[in-house]
Design a protein around this nucleic acid. Sequence first.
DNA 1: ACATCATATATGACATATCATGGAATTACT
DNA 2: AGTAATTCCATGATATGTCATATATGATGT
Lengths: 165, 165
Amino acid sequence: MAGGKAKSAARAPRLWVLILAAQRESQRMLSEALRPLGITPAQGEVLSVLSSHPPLTLNALGERLVCETGSPSRLVSGLVRLGWVRRSPAPGDGRAVLLTLTGGGHRLATRCLTVTGELEAELVALAEAPAPVEASALDITLRTLWRLVSHLPAGRALKRRAGKG
Amino acid sequence: MAGGKAKSAARAPRLWVLILAAQRESQRMLSEALRPLGITPAQGEVLSVLSSHPPLTLNALGERLVCETGSPSRLVSGLVRLGWVRRSPAPGDGRAVLLTLTGGGHRLATRCLTVTGELEAELVALAEAPAPVEASALDITLRTLWRLVSHLPAGRALKRRAGKG
DNA sequence: ACATCATATATGACATATCATGGAATTACT
DNA sequence: AGTAATTCCATGATATGTCATATATGATGT
C-alpha cells in the first residue's frame, strides 16, 4: 500500500542526500575529466554556454549558469586570464561587458562539450536501470540516483551509515 | 536504435546539470531552513549521523558523510566550539578521537532531523509527478529532477539557456 | 629494543561559492 | 536639465570543500 511506502521514506536515504551524493560524485568525475583541458567544471559551463549563445553580458551569462548565482565576474576573469574569453565594451551601454570566446576558446569549448558528453554517457550508464521497473516516478528517481552513487565513495558513505541505523 | 536517444541527449538538459541544479537548490532550501538552528547543512549532517550511531572516531564519521571527503576535522571543530559535540580520547588508541553529542547536541540533532524531514517533504512535493508516467527509469529521473528545479533559480537558468540553443 | 611503515588527526594552502560593498553608467521622474 | 533610483560590474570578506603536509601514535618485522 501507499502508506507503507510513504512511511519508509522517513528512514530511507533521503532524496536530498542522494541528490547531494550524486552531485559530489559527478562533480568529481567531471573535474577529473576536464583536468587535461586545464579547466574546472564551472569554467566548462561558461565555455559551453558562450559557445552556443550570441555574445552575452556578464549578467546574462550569470542568468544562464547553474554553477553560480550572482554575476560570475571572477569566474570569467579566470577564463580571460587563460585567453579563452574576451571582454569587450557593450555598444550602447557603458556599464555592460560583452563576453565572447576567442578562437582558442571556441576550440576548447568544443573539446569541453565532447568531454561533457562522454561524462554524461558514463553517468547514464551508471544510472540506467537493468530492467523496466514499475513504481512511482519518485521511487524510480530515488533508485536511479542510488544506482548512480551506490558504488562510489558517497554511496559507500551512505551504506556505512545505514549499517547501524 | 539507441542512437536516436543518445543524439537527443546532446541538447537536452543533461543529467549532470540537473543533478547540479537540484543540489544547489536543495542546499539553499536546507541552508535557509537550518538557519534558525544556527547550523549549516554540513553540520546538520554530522549531528544526524552522530545522533544515530555509537560514538564514532573522526575517521569513521568521515566515512559516513556525503558532504565532505577526508576527515571532517574542521567541520567537527565548529560543532565543538558551539558546544554540540564533545571530543574525547579513544580508549586503546592514543591517536583517535571519539565524538559524542552533548545533551544540547542531542536536542539540536532532534530538531535538525525534524527540519530535514520537513525539507524532504517539500522536495518530494516539488518532485512528485502529477500522474503515473510510462517511460524509462532514466527519463523519469530526468523529468523528476526537472520538476524539482524547473521553477527555481537554477531551473530558470536552464530555461534561459535553452531559449537560444 | 629498534627501525620502518601505516594510521589518526590537525593544519596550512588553495580554489570556489555566497554575501555585502562601492563605483560607474543608465533610466526614470520632475 | 537635474536629481534620484536602478542597473552593471568589480572587489573585499567570509565560509566551505579539497589537497597536501606535519605530527603523533600504533603496528610490523628483524
